[in-house]
Write a protein that binds this DNA or RNA. Structure first.
Lengths: 206, 206
DNA sequence: TAACATATGTTAGTTACGCTAACATTCTAG
DNA sequence: CTAGAATGTTAGCGTAACTAACATATGTTA
Protein backbone atom coordinates (compact mmCIF):
# COMPACT_ATOMS: atom_id res chain seq x y z
CA UNK A 1 0.00 0.00 0.00
CA UNK A 2 2.97 2.25 0.53
CA UNK A 3 3.98 1.16 -2.92
CA UNK A 4 0.76 2.41 -4.45
CA UNK A 5 1.33 5.78 -2.86
CA UNK A 6 4.90 6.01 -4.07
CA UNK A 7 4.11 5.02 -7.60
CA UNK A 8 1.38 7.64 -7.86
CA UNK A 9 3.70 10.45 -6.84
CA UNK A 10 4.84 11.63 -10.19
CA UNK A 11 1.69 13.66 -10.38
CA UNK A 12 1.15 16.90 -8.54
CA UNK A 13 -2.26 15.73 -7.43
CA UNK A 14 -2.34 12.56 -5.44
CA UNK A 15 -5.87 11.66 -6.47
CA UNK A 16 -6.70 9.27 -3.65
CA UNK A 17 -5.23 11.22 -0.80
CA UNK A 18 -8.16 10.91 1.54
CA UNK A 19 -8.18 7.14 1.38
CA UNK A 20 -4.39 6.97 1.46
CA UNK A 21 -4.32 9.07 4.62
CA UNK A 22 -6.93 6.96 6.36
CA UNK A 23 -4.94 3.92 5.40
CA UNK A 24 -1.68 5.38 6.66
CA UNK A 25 -3.30 6.58 9.87
CA UNK A 26 -4.75 3.14 10.41
CA UNK A 27 -1.35 1.51 10.10
CA UNK A 28 0.32 4.03 12.37
CA UNK A 29 -2.38 3.92 15.00
CA UNK A 30 -2.16 0.15 15.11
CA UNK A 31 1.60 0.39 15.43
CA UNK A 32 1.95 3.19 17.97
CA UNK A 33 -1.38 3.32 19.74
CA UNK A 34 -4.36 5.63 19.33
CA UNK A 35 -2.59 8.79 20.49
CA UNK A 36 0.89 7.89 19.39
CA UNK A 37 0.56 8.71 15.76
CA UNK A 38 1.36 11.96 14.06
CA UNK A 39 -0.31 13.57 11.14
CA UNK A 40 3.12 14.39 9.81
CA UNK A 41 4.14 10.75 9.73
CA UNK A 42 0.95 9.82 7.93
CA UNK A 43 1.85 12.45 5.35
CA UNK A 44 5.27 10.92 4.88
CA UNK A 45 3.69 7.52 4.34
CA UNK A 46 1.30 8.93 1.79
CA UNK A 47 4.07 10.95 0.15
CA UNK A 48 2.57 14.40 0.51
CA UNK A 49 3.37 17.58 2.40
CA UNK A 50 2.16 18.12 5.95
CA UNK A 51 -0.35 20.71 4.81
CA UNK A 52 -2.11 18.45 2.35
CA UNK A 53 -4.39 16.66 4.83
CA UNK A 54 -6.19 19.90 5.61
CA UNK A 55 -7.84 19.78 2.18
CA UNK A 56 -9.60 16.60 3.30
CA UNK A 57 -9.84 16.74 7.08
CA UNK A 58 -10.58 19.65 9.38
CA UNK A 59 -7.83 18.61 11.76
CA UNK A 60 -5.94 15.66 13.14
CA UNK A 61 -8.98 14.57 15.11
CA UNK A 62 -11.13 14.32 12.00
CA UNK A 63 -8.70 11.85 10.45
CA UNK A 64 -8.76 9.78 13.61
CA UNK A 65 -12.55 9.90 13.48
CA UNK A 66 -12.49 8.60 9.94
CA UNK A 67 -10.42 5.62 11.00
CA UNK A 68 -12.78 4.94 13.88
CA UNK A 69 -15.82 5.13 11.64
CA UNK A 70 -14.56 2.32 9.46
CA UNK A 71 -14.43 0.10 12.52
CA UNK A 72 -18.14 -0.03 13.19
CA UNK A 73 -18.79 -1.49 9.76
CA UNK A 74 -16.17 -4.17 10.28
CA UNK A 75 -17.44 -5.03 13.75
CA UNK A 76 -20.97 -5.36 12.50
CA UNK A 77 -19.93 -7.66 9.67
CA UNK A 78 -17.96 -9.90 11.97
CA UNK A 79 -20.63 -10.22 14.66
CA UNK A 80 -23.33 -10.88 12.08
CA UNK A 81 -21.23 -13.55 10.43
CA UNK A 82 -20.60 -15.19 13.79
CA UNK A 83 -24.26 -15.10 14.72
CA UNK A 84 -25.28 -16.72 11.47
CA UNK A 85 -23.07 -19.73 12.02
CA UNK A 86 -25.48 -21.00 14.67
CA UNK A 87 -29.19 -21.47 15.05
CA UNK A 88 -31.12 -18.28 15.59
CA UNK A 89 -31.82 -17.70 19.25
CA UNK A 90 -29.39 -20.32 20.49
CA UNK A 91 -26.91 -19.73 23.26
CA UNK A 92 -24.18 -20.78 20.85
CA UNK A 93 -25.14 -17.98 18.52
CA UNK A 94 -24.81 -15.40 21.27
CA UNK A 95 -21.55 -16.87 22.52
CA UNK A 96 -20.16 -16.78 18.98
CA UNK A 97 -21.03 -13.11 18.68
CA UNK A 98 -19.23 -12.42 21.92
CA UNK A 99 -16.14 -14.25 20.72
CA UNK A 100 -16.25 -12.33 17.47
CA UNK A 101 -16.48 -9.05 19.39
CA UNK A 102 -13.41 -9.89 21.43
CA UNK A 103 -11.56 -11.21 18.39
CA UNK A 104 -12.21 -7.96 16.57
CA UNK A 105 -10.78 -6.00 19.48
CA UNK A 106 -7.74 -8.26 19.51
CA UNK A 107 -7.21 -7.80 15.76
CA UNK A 108 -7.76 -4.06 15.76
CA UNK A 109 -7.03 -2.88 19.28
CA UNK A 110 -6.35 0.72 18.39
CA UNK A 111 -9.39 1.05 16.16
CA UNK A 112 -11.48 -0.59 18.85
CA UNK A 113 -10.35 1.95 21.42
CA UNK A 114 -11.02 4.80 19.04
CA UNK A 115 -14.52 3.53 18.29
CA UNK A 116 -15.61 3.38 21.91
CA UNK A 117 -13.32 5.93 23.45
CA UNK A 118 -14.10 8.95 21.35
CA UNK A 119 -14.35 12.14 23.35
CA UNK A 120 -18.03 13.13 23.35
CA UNK A 121 -17.49 16.86 22.88
CA UNK A 122 -15.66 16.10 19.65
CA UNK A 123 -18.82 14.55 18.25
CA UNK A 124 -21.58 16.51 16.56
CA UNK A 125 -24.18 17.35 19.18
CA UNK A 126 -27.13 15.02 19.59
CA UNK A 127 -26.01 12.07 17.54
CA UNK A 128 -23.10 10.80 19.54
CA UNK A 129 -21.73 7.48 18.39
CA UNK A 130 -24.56 7.05 15.94
CA UNK A 131 -22.53 4.53 14.01
CA UNK A 132 -22.60 2.18 16.96
CA UNK A 133 -26.37 1.83 16.90
CA UNK A 134 -26.72 -0.63 13.97
CA UNK A 135 -23.94 -2.63 15.57
CA UNK A 136 -25.85 -2.84 18.81
CA UNK A 137 -29.01 -3.72 16.93
CA UNK A 138 -27.39 -6.96 15.83
CA UNK A 139 -27.06 -7.92 19.47
CA UNK A 140 -30.59 -6.79 20.32
CA UNK A 141 -32.05 -8.96 17.57
CA UNK A 142 -30.08 -11.98 18.69
CA UNK A 143 -31.14 -11.46 22.29
CA UNK A 144 -34.78 -11.11 21.29
CA UNK A 145 -34.53 -14.40 19.45
CA UNK A 146 -32.94 -16.04 22.46
CA UNK A 147 -35.62 -14.72 24.82
CA UNK A 148 -38.30 -16.09 22.56
CA UNK A 149 -36.65 -19.46 22.17
CA UNK A 150 -35.64 -19.94 25.77
CA UNK A 151 -38.83 -18.65 27.28
CA UNK A 152 -36.87 -16.62 29.79
CA UNK A 153 -38.91 -14.10 31.69
CA UNK A 154 -37.30 -10.71 31.30
CA UNK A 155 -38.91 -7.29 31.25
CA UNK A 156 -36.71 -5.69 28.65
CA UNK A 157 -34.34 -6.87 25.99
CA UNK A 158 -31.81 -4.43 27.40
CA UNK A 159 -31.76 -6.29 30.70
CA UNK A 160 -30.07 -9.11 28.84
CA UNK A 161 -28.25 -7.25 26.09
CA UNK A 162 -26.45 -4.73 28.28
CA UNK A 163 -24.93 -7.30 30.63
CA UNK A 164 -23.79 -9.33 27.65
CA UNK A 165 -22.23 -6.22 26.17
CA UNK A 166 -20.41 -5.40 29.40
CA UNK A 167 -18.99 -8.92 29.58
CA UNK A 168 -17.49 -8.91 26.11
CA UNK A 169 -16.50 -5.26 26.24
CA UNK A 170 -14.71 -5.78 29.53
CA UNK A 171 -13.03 -8.90 28.25
CA UNK A 172 -11.93 -7.08 25.13
CA UNK A 173 -10.46 -4.15 27.05
CA UNK A 174 -8.68 -6.27 29.62
CA UNK A 175 -7.25 -8.35 26.81
CA UNK A 176 -5.95 -5.56 24.60
CA UNK A 177 -4.60 -3.60 27.56
CA UNK A 178 -2.77 -6.73 28.74
CA UNK A 179 -4.39 -6.48 32.14
CA UNK A 180 -4.87 -10.23 32.39
CA UNK A 181 -1.11 -10.72 32.21
CA UNK A 182 -0.42 -9.59 35.76
CA UNK A 183 -3.08 -11.63 37.53
CA UNK A 184 -4.03 -14.44 35.15
CA UNK A 185 -1.42 -14.78 32.41
CA UNK A 186 -2.38 -16.84 29.42
CA UNK A 187 -6.09 -16.36 29.94
CA UNK A 188 -8.09 -18.04 27.20
CA UNK A 189 -10.57 -15.32 26.33
CA UNK A 190 -12.67 -17.53 24.08
CA UNK A 191 -13.26 -19.86 26.98
CA UNK A 192 -13.81 -16.92 29.27
CA UNK A 193 -16.49 -15.44 27.03
CA UNK A 194 -18.09 -18.83 26.62
CA UNK A 195 -18.35 -19.49 30.34
CA UNK A 196 -19.29 -15.96 31.38
CA UNK A 197 -21.99 -15.63 28.78
CA UNK A 198 -23.43 -19.09 29.27
CA UNK A 199 -23.51 -18.71 33.04
CA UNK A 200 -25.17 -15.32 32.82
CA UNK A 201 -27.86 -16.56 30.42
CA UNK A 202 -28.46 -19.57 32.62
CA UNK A 203 -28.78 -17.34 35.65
CA UNK A 204 -31.22 -15.02 33.91
CA UNK A 205 -33.47 -17.72 32.51
CA UNK A 206 -33.54 -20.13 35.44
CA UNK B 1 -4.09 23.60 45.87
CA UNK B 2 -3.14 26.18 43.25
CA UNK B 3 -3.13 28.59 46.16
CA UNK B 4 -0.55 26.54 48.03
CA UNK B 5 1.67 26.61 44.97
CA UNK B 6 1.36 30.36 44.47
CA UNK B 7 2.00 31.20 48.08
CA UNK B 8 5.13 29.11 48.14
CA UNK B 9 6.63 30.81 45.13
CA UNK B 10 8.66 33.46 46.83
CA UNK B 11 11.33 30.85 47.32
CA UNK B 12 13.66 29.71 44.60
CA UNK B 13 13.09 26.10 45.62
CA UNK B 14 9.54 24.91 45.49
CA UNK B 15 10.01 22.26 48.11
CA UNK B 16 7.05 20.06 47.29
CA UNK B 17 7.36 20.09 43.54
CA UNK B 18 6.97 16.38 43.01
CA UNK B 19 3.65 16.26 44.84
CA UNK B 20 2.51 19.53 43.31
CA UNK B 21 3.18 18.23 39.81
CA UNK B 22 1.32 14.98 40.44
CA UNK B 23 -1.53 17.03 41.77
CA UNK B 24 -1.54 19.37 38.80
CA UNK B 25 -1.27 16.50 36.35
CA UNK B 26 -4.18 14.79 38.06
CA UNK B 27 -6.36 17.86 37.67
CA UNK B 28 -5.40 18.38 34.06
CA UNK B 29 -5.80 14.75 33.10
CA UNK B 30 -9.25 14.71 34.62
CA UNK B 31 -10.11 17.89 32.77
CA UNK B 32 -8.68 17.15 29.32
CA UNK B 33 -8.39 13.38 29.20
CA UNK B 34 -5.42 11.08 29.65
CA UNK B 35 -3.52 12.26 26.59
CA UNK B 36 -4.75 15.80 26.50
CA UNK B 37 -2.55 17.24 29.15
CA UNK B 38 0.79 18.92 28.71
CA UNK B 39 3.76 18.91 31.01
CA UNK B 40 4.11 22.61 30.30
CA UNK B 41 0.63 23.35 31.60
CA UNK B 42 1.29 21.35 34.74
CA UNK B 43 4.38 23.48 35.24
CA UNK B 44 2.32 26.63 34.95
CA UNK B 45 -0.11 25.32 37.52
CA UNK B 46 2.72 24.50 39.88
CA UNK B 47 4.40 27.81 39.16
CA UNK B 48 7.73 26.50 37.93
CA UNK B 49 9.65 26.48 34.67
CA UNK B 50 9.13 23.77 32.08
CA UNK B 51 12.50 22.22 32.83
CA UNK B 52 11.87 21.74 36.54
CA UNK B 53 9.91 18.46 36.29
CA UNK B 54 12.96 16.67 34.96
CA UNK B 55 14.54 16.84 38.42
CA UNK B 56 11.73 14.59 39.64
CA UNK B 57 10.52 12.60 36.65
CA UNK B 58 12.42 11.00 33.82
CA UNK B 59 9.91 12.24 31.26
CA UNK B 60 6.29 13.11 30.72
CA UNK B 61 5.33 9.45 30.86
CA UNK B 62 6.82 9.01 34.30
CA UNK B 63 4.59 11.74 35.67
CA UNK B 64 1.58 10.11 34.11
CA UNK B 65 2.68 6.83 35.66
CA UNK B 66 2.86 8.48 39.06
CA UNK B 67 -0.73 9.65 38.72
CA UNK B 68 -1.83 6.17 37.67
CA UNK B 69 -0.02 4.53 40.57
CA UNK B 70 -2.01 6.51 43.07
CA UNK B 71 -5.16 5.07 41.59
CA UNK B 72 -4.59 1.46 42.57
CA UNK B 73 -4.39 2.41 46.22
CA UNK B 74 -7.64 4.32 46.02
CA UNK B 75 -9.39 1.54 44.14
CA UNK B 76 -8.31 -1.02 46.67
CA UNK B 77 -9.51 1.08 49.58
CA UNK B 78 -12.89 1.62 48.01
CA UNK B 79 -13.52 -1.99 47.04
CA UNK B 80 -12.41 -3.23 50.46
CA UNK B 81 -14.68 -0.77 52.20
CA UNK B 82 -17.59 -1.85 50.02
CA UNK B 83 -16.92 -5.52 50.65
CA UNK B 84 -16.85 -5.02 54.40
CA UNK B 85 -20.28 -3.49 54.48
CA UNK B 86 -21.81 -6.90 53.89
CA UNK B 87 -21.43 -10.40 55.24
CA UNK B 88 -18.30 -12.18 54.08
CA UNK B 89 -19.03 -14.45 51.16
CA UNK B 90 -22.46 -13.03 50.43
CA UNK B 91 -23.65 -12.08 46.98
CA UNK B 92 -24.35 -8.61 48.34
CA UNK B 93 -20.73 -8.22 49.27
CA UNK B 94 -19.58 -9.05 45.76
CA UNK B 95 -22.20 -6.82 44.19
CA UNK B 96 -21.13 -3.96 46.44
CA UNK B 97 -17.53 -4.39 45.32
CA UNK B 98 -18.64 -4.23 41.72
CA UNK B 99 -20.58 -1.05 42.32
CA UNK B 100 -17.60 0.46 44.08
CA UNK B 101 -15.38 -0.44 41.13
CA UNK B 102 -17.70 1.29 38.69
CA UNK B 103 -18.17 4.26 41.01
CA UNK B 104 -14.42 4.70 41.21
CA UNK B 105 -14.18 4.72 37.43
CA UNK B 106 -16.98 7.28 37.26
CA UNK B 107 -15.27 9.53 39.81
CA UNK B 108 -11.80 9.24 38.32
CA UNK B 109 -12.29 8.32 34.68
CA UNK B 110 -8.93 9.52 33.47
CA UNK B 111 -7.01 7.89 36.28
CA UNK B 112 -8.96 4.70 35.71
CA UNK B 113 -7.99 4.65 32.05
CA UNK B 114 -4.37 5.32 32.89
CA UNK B 115 -4.32 2.51 35.43
CA UNK B 116 -5.58 -0.14 33.05
CA UNK B 117 -4.51 1.29 29.75
CA UNK B 118 -0.81 1.75 30.35
CA UNK B 119 1.30 0.78 27.42
CA UNK B 120 3.12 -2.43 28.37
CA UNK B 121 6.46 -1.53 26.81
CA UNK B 122 6.58 1.56 29.01
CA UNK B 123 6.56 -0.64 32.06
CA UNK B 124 9.67 -2.20 33.59
CA UNK B 125 10.07 -5.65 32.16
CA UNK B 126 8.63 -8.56 34.09
CA UNK B 127 6.49 -6.79 36.63
CA UNK B 128 3.86 -5.22 34.45
CA UNK B 129 0.96 -3.68 36.34
CA UNK B 130 2.27 -5.11 39.58
CA UNK B 131 0.27 -2.54 41.51
CA UNK B 132 -2.94 -4.11 40.27
CA UNK B 133 -2.26 -7.44 41.91
CA UNK B 134 -3.20 -6.55 45.51
CA UNK B 135 -6.31 -4.93 44.09
CA UNK B 136 -7.24 -8.14 42.36
CA UNK B 137 -6.48 -10.11 45.49
CA UNK B 138 -9.34 -8.36 47.22
CA UNK B 139 -11.67 -9.80 44.62
CA UNK B 140 -10.11 -13.25 44.80
CA UNK B 141 -10.59 -13.40 48.55
CA UNK B 142 -14.19 -12.34 48.28
CA UNK B 143 -14.85 -14.91 45.58
CA UNK B 144 -13.23 -17.65 47.63
CA UNK B 145 -15.48 -16.78 50.52
CA UNK B 146 -18.51 -16.84 48.26
CA UNK B 147 -17.58 -20.23 46.81
CA UNK B 148 -17.22 -21.65 50.28
CA UNK B 149 -20.47 -20.17 51.51
CA UNK B 150 -22.56 -20.99 48.46
CA UNK B 151 -21.17 -24.44 47.92
CA UNK B 152 -20.85 -23.74 44.20
CA UNK B 153 -18.84 -26.29 42.31
CA UNK B 154 -16.11 -24.49 40.44
CA UNK B 155 -12.65 -25.72 39.51
CA UNK B 156 -10.79 -22.47 40.00
CA UNK B 157 -11.41 -19.20 41.76
CA UNK B 158 -10.44 -17.47 38.54
CA UNK B 159 -13.37 -19.07 36.74
CA UNK B 160 -15.58 -16.87 38.87
CA UNK B 161 -13.34 -13.90 39.50
CA UNK B 162 -12.42 -13.16 35.90
CA UNK B 163 -16.00 -13.05 34.61
CA UNK B 164 -16.93 -10.77 37.50
CA UNK B 165 -14.02 -8.53 36.63
CA UNK B 166 -15.01 -8.36 32.97
CA UNK B 167 -18.55 -7.39 33.91
CA UNK B 168 -17.60 -4.46 36.09
CA UNK B 169 -14.67 -3.43 33.91
CA UNK B 170 -16.85 -3.40 30.83
CA UNK B 171 -19.57 -1.49 32.65
CA UNK B 172 -17.02 1.02 33.87
CA UNK B 173 -15.56 1.60 30.43
CA UNK B 174 -18.88 1.86 28.65
CA UNK B 175 -20.01 4.32 31.31
CA UNK B 176 -17.02 6.65 31.28
CA UNK B 177 -16.78 6.58 27.50
CA UNK B 178 -20.48 7.49 27.28
CA UNK B 179 -21.16 4.50 25.09
CA UNK B 180 -24.46 3.75 26.80
CA UNK B 181 -25.79 7.13 25.71
CA UNK B 182 -26.36 6.18 22.10
CA UNK B 183 -28.16 2.88 22.65
CA UNK B 184 -29.46 2.99 26.21
CA UNK B 185 -29.38 6.55 27.54
CA UNK B 186 -29.77 6.97 31.25
CA UNK B 187 -28.62 3.46 32.05
CA UNK B 188 -28.51 2.86 35.80
CA UNK B 189 -25.14 1.20 36.18
CA UNK B 190 -25.68 0.27 39.81
CA UNK B 191 -28.72 -1.72 38.82
CA UNK B 192 -26.86 -3.11 35.83
CA UNK B 193 -23.99 -4.36 37.97
CA UNK B 194 -26.42 -5.78 40.48
CA UNK B 195 -28.37 -7.76 37.93
CA UNK B 196 -25.41 -8.89 35.83
CA UNK B 197 -23.41 -10.05 38.78
CA UNK B 198 -26.29 -11.74 40.55
CA UNK B 199 -27.40 -13.55 37.41
CA UNK B 200 -23.88 -14.71 36.66
CA UNK B 201 -23.35 -16.06 40.18
CA UNK B 202 -26.70 -17.77 40.05
CA UNK B 203 -25.83 -19.34 36.73
CA UNK B 204 -22.48 -20.57 38.01
CA UNK B 205 -23.75 -22.05 41.22
CA UNK B 206 -27.01 -23.56 40.05
C1' DT C 1 -10.47 25.68 -27.54
C1' DA C 2 -9.88 29.60 -24.19
C1' DA C 3 -10.87 31.11 -19.82
C1' DC C 4 -12.58 30.93 -15.40
C1' DA C 5 -13.82 28.61 -11.01
C1' DT C 6 -12.91 25.01 -8.03
C1' DA C 7 -10.35 21.42 -6.08
C1' DT C 8 -6.13 19.95 -4.42
C1' DG C 9 -1.48 20.28 -3.83
C1' DT C 10 3.18 23.07 -2.07
C1' DT C 11 6.27 26.14 0.71
C1' DA C 12 7.05 29.03 4.51
C1' DG C 13 6.11 30.46 8.95
C1' DT C 14 3.79 30.51 13.83
C1' DT C 15 3.04 28.47 18.11
C1' DA C 16 3.32 24.92 21.56
C1' DC C 17 5.47 21.14 23.56
C1' DG C 18 9.03 17.59 25.09
C1' DC C 19 13.44 17.50 26.22
C1' DT C 20 18.60 18.76 27.04
C1' DA C 21 22.55 21.59 28.31
C1' DA C 22 24.63 25.00 30.90
C1' DC C 23 24.19 27.85 34.64
C1' DA C 24 22.18 29.64 39.42
C1' DT C 25 20.52 29.03 43.99
C1' DT C 26 19.57 26.58 48.11
C1' DC C 27 20.24 22.85 51.39
C1' DT C 28 23.06 19.88 54.08
C1' DA C 29 27.30 17.33 55.80
C1' DG C 30 31.65 17.39 57.51
C1' DC D 1 32.28 27.76 56.89
C1' DT D 2 32.54 25.44 52.93
C1' DA D 3 32.09 21.82 49.36
C1' DG D 4 29.00 19.17 46.95
C1' DA D 5 24.38 17.42 46.18
C1' DA D 6 19.83 18.76 45.24
C1' DT D 7 16.77 21.53 42.85
C1' DG D 8 15.73 25.36 40.49
C1' DT D 9 16.36 28.73 35.91
C1' DT D 10 17.17 30.31 31.03
C1' DA D 11 18.24 29.27 26.33
C1' DG D 12 17.84 26.50 22.63
C1' DC D 13 16.87 22.22 19.62
C1' DG D 14 13.65 19.26 17.08
C1' DT D 15 9.05 17.96 15.96
C1' DA D 16 4.21 18.43 15.35
C1' DA D 17 -0.32 20.88 14.42
C1' DC D 18 -2.03 24.28 12.00
C1' DT D 19 -2.51 28.59 8.81
C1' DA D 20 -1.64 31.72 4.93
C1' DA D 21 -0.21 32.58 0.47
C1' DC D 22 0.84 30.61 -3.66
C1' DA D 23 0.95 26.80 -7.55
C1' DT D 24 -1.07 23.29 -10.29
C1' DA D 25 -4.59 20.36 -11.93
C1' DT D 26 -9.54 19.57 -13.31
C1' DG D 27 -13.79 20.49 -15.28
C1' DT D 28 -17.43 23.61 -17.02
C1' DT D 29 -19.03 26.95 -20.02
C1' DA D 30 -18.80 30.43 -23.78
Amino acid sequence: MAKAAAEKRERYHHGQLREALIDAAHQLINAHGPEGFSLAEACRLAGVSTAAPYRHFADRGALVEAVASEGFGWLRERTEAARDQHRLGSVESIVAMGKAYVAFAADEPAVFKLMFGRHPDVQPEGEAHIEGTPCFQVLLDAVDAWIERSGAEVDHTLDVALPLWTIVHGTAYLLIDHDFDAVAPGTDTDRLVERSTAAFLKGISG
